[in-house]
């Protein structure tokens, strides 16, 4: 009990630092760009346009019975969040070594701040995403989407994905301190993971055996839950929702455990 209290007290004390780190990232990201934060909205729209043209026009990809553009976009924004946030979180501890070496700061702040920073970007991409869902009603793409009360479950799904990402971030940033090779490996892992997750294709085109294996891909679970609400108007089963929570909390627990265990050793590997 006192331990939980201590963790939250710590969190509160360093919350201001967290906001400062996040706002620093924003300031640096949009420094000297004319459109500034508008890029966070424009970027997904333009990426989307490119992807939509490539996959639906050139490769003639489609997923039976649903609006392919929304199918694709849901996958892209969710997977992009995960890959960007976990990647930035991974490098965050090593990047801030000068600081860690000089002042006492709880080290978990850095990966968590990165996940939040990319998270804000993710929330902004939801605006064009939702706009496209609405546009599907006026004839963008072949099929329309569903808008219903189940949308209220989306924040829960995204939050579980956030926890999962933070867990990965903590784990990777910790390992990368001791083994910088992770920086190079993880980029390739992410590319592979991207293709192994049905972002632009449907799981049905895979052989049955691969389909079973796919269920062990956490990102597949997050994507499918969100898509079933938006594209099919179906509420994910309570079992599914429970599993999502478990994936999120479980990964966070693993990451936090490893990080906590090893963080006092970081200083030797500066």
């Amino acid at each position: 009990m006192t331990k939980t209290k201590a963790i939250f007290g710590n969190f509160k004390r360093y919350w201001f630092l967290m906001t400062q780190l996040i706002s620093r990232d924003f300031k640096k990201k949009y420094k000297r760009s004319v459109l500034g934060i508008l890029w966070s909205l424009l970027n997904p729209i333009l990426t989307m346009a490119v992807m939509a043209i490539v996959f639906s026009q050139m490769f003639k990809f489609k997923v039976e019975g649903v609006n392919y553009i929304v199918y694709l976009m849901t996958g892209i924004i969710m997977f992009n969040y995960f890959s960007q946030a976990s990647n930035m979180a991974m490098t965050s501890v090593v990047e801030n070594f000068t600081l860690i070496n000089k002042v006492y700061i709880p080290k978990y702040i850095f990966p968590v701040a990165k996940c939040l920073f990319v998270g804000i970007d993710f929330l902004l991409t939801l605006i064009p995403w939702f706009a496209i869902i609405i546009l599907s009603y006026v004839g963008l793409g072949e099929y329309t989407c569903h808008i219903n009360w189940y949308y209220l479950l989306l924040p829960y799904i995204f939050f579980c994905m956030f926890l999962f990402t933070v867990g990965m971030g903590l784990l990777l940033s910790c390992i990368s301190v001791f083994l910088r090779d992770v920086f190079h490996i993880y980029g390739i892992v992410l590319t592979l993971w991207n293709y192994l997750t049905p972002v632009f294709y449907s799981i049905e085109i895979l052989p049955a055996r691969l389909q079973t294996i796919m269920h062990f891909n956490p990102m597949y679970q997050f994507l499918t839950a969100a898509r079933s609400i938006v594209l099919y108007g179906q509420r994910p089963s309570f079992t599914t929702l429970g599993i999502l929570g478990l994936i999120g909390v479980g990964m966070l627990a693993i990451g936090a455990f490893v990080f906590k265990k090893k963080q006092d050793k970081f200083i030797y590997y500066v």
């Binding site: 400062q20 706002s23 620093r24 420094k31 000089k102």
Partner: peptide, 28 residues
């Protein structure tokens, strides 16, 4: 701690922003 001054500065940010950032790092 004043072990190394300015360790928390971000060169890209201006002085105003750095006052807040560095202050936050020092726990203000």
């Amino acid at each position: 701690p004043m072990i190394e001054l300015g360790a928390g500065f971000d060169p890209e940010l201006n002085a105003r922003e750095n006052i807040y950032l560095n202050g936050a790092i020092l726990g203000y």
